[in-house]
Nucleic acid binder design. Sequence first.
DNA 1: CTGGCCGATATGTCCGAGTAAAGGGAGACC
DNA 2: GGTCTCCCTTTACTCGGACATATCGGCCAG
Lengths: 258, 258
Amino acid sequence: MTDHGGDGAAAQPTSVEPAEAAPRAARGTGRRLHGAIAHKLGTAILSGQYQPGDVLTGEVAFSEALDVSRSAYREAIQVLSAKGLVESRPKAGTRVLPRTRWNLLDPDVLAWAFGGSPDLNFIRNLFELRAIVEPAAARLAAERRTREDVRLIKDALGRMRRLTLSNDEGRAADRDFHTAILRATQNDALVTLSASIGAAVSWTTRFKMRARDLPRNPVPDHARVADAIAASDPQAAEDAMRQLVELALEDTRSSMED
Amino acid sequence: MTDHGGDGAAAQPTSVEPAEAAPRAARGTGRRLHGAIAHKLGTAILSGQYQPGDVLTGEVAFSEALDVSRSAYREAIQVLSAKGLVESRPKAGTRVLPRTRWNLLDPDVLAWAFGGSPDLNFIRNLFELRAIVEPAAARLAAERRTREDVRLIKDALGRMRRLTLSNDEGRAADRDFHTAILRATQNDALVTLSASIGAAVSWTTRFKMRARDLPRNPVPDHARVADAIAASDPQAAEDAMRQLVELALEDTRSSMED
DNA sequence: CTGGCCGATATGTCCGAGTAAAGGGAGACC
DNA sequence: GGTCTCCCTTTACTCGGACATATCGGCCAG
């Protein structure tokens, strides 16, 4: 701990690497050092390694254990604190807050939650949110979509047609499809839910793949939604989206039961 | 800028005061110094004082302008960055991100948005979210509520009965009512929306008060929802909540039109 | 036994130096 | 003339260490 910058000290077992073997594409939070620390601690909290009420007391001790400066550690704690995961007070230390205080819909928190082996129950909860929001969003989208919105939706649908849900690009197209619909509602509060909905879409898809080797072709369901929105038919859009979600639930049910 | 700690330098015009005349009760983010800075900058961004794309370049310059150390300023920026408001990169500086990247449902961001004179359109968006989520949540609550949930709901309803929506305590009871229902869904993702829904409830109420001197008595609507949930009747709960939201919309419509 | 004082402790704040990355311009090449 | 590459400057990033402040828990007086 005498040298300054980054290169030395690769021997520390608990050291935090800025890059952290991130595939450059999934650059979530971990590009800078404090981001990497926040990612590490956030994942540890979301995975239950630290439980609500536990104290992370000792800025000095922790920063030394992670082999980073106190500043970097503190900045990471500020990030976690901003997301409602922890709270620090003088003398009392830094404690993990109860789950109800966590901003579970924050994109980073969501990513951390799915970093390890995700909680089945939480995936169910997200799916439930999806089932509530998406049909209503499809209705609003049908009422308000611009020509540009339709283009984005059709574009995502086209990519879904070409690719499949078996690879990452295809799943990204699926997410883009649902995100484009939320955008078309012209409601910023709903757009903010894209990250959460997207996570739900991705993970339910993953479970779907686990359940069936040759899953149902998702394109027709999606096409119906897209057509209804393009035709500015709110009721049809809502119904089509509800059916889409229900089919997804059906395909997923077997592998999501306890 | 020669002295160390807190007491000196009360003459700086742009200085940030840790307490910032906060009524001790509404201790949102501004207890510590970096929290106060984040609050100040966050409010400035949400109010449009800084627009997406604008750069807050110059850690040194900014921290000196606010009369705080660079550490405190940086920690504040980490908070804003964690909420998706800004992004910092070497050489490029710290820029305000496009609105679509903001975590608008984050409790702090929401508070900052309502800190100044809130955007009418955004309130409408939140109300729309409320109209989508709450009826569905009431249905789930009726299916899953525990005895404790019912107690909390009835308790909040009782407080609404005694107090009125004209004072803060009464509005808090209203928020508690809706929060208790979300909790009763046993869905953490929905519970996280409490802050957003609560903000929507508070602000629509405020508009309601502006429109009518003697507003409709809200207790009967709420009581119907509570009874349906207590009776474990999902359909009735959903219908009652939908009616409640529609009545609120009706009462608010006149003062929310352009 | 109750109440307020007081010290130990962990977070909060400040400072200044050194590191690394990225944008933008100068220069070379096509 | 247009485009590409390389380098330099600017800016954020990281570090270490010092001092300030708030809070908890025990101690002492009433």
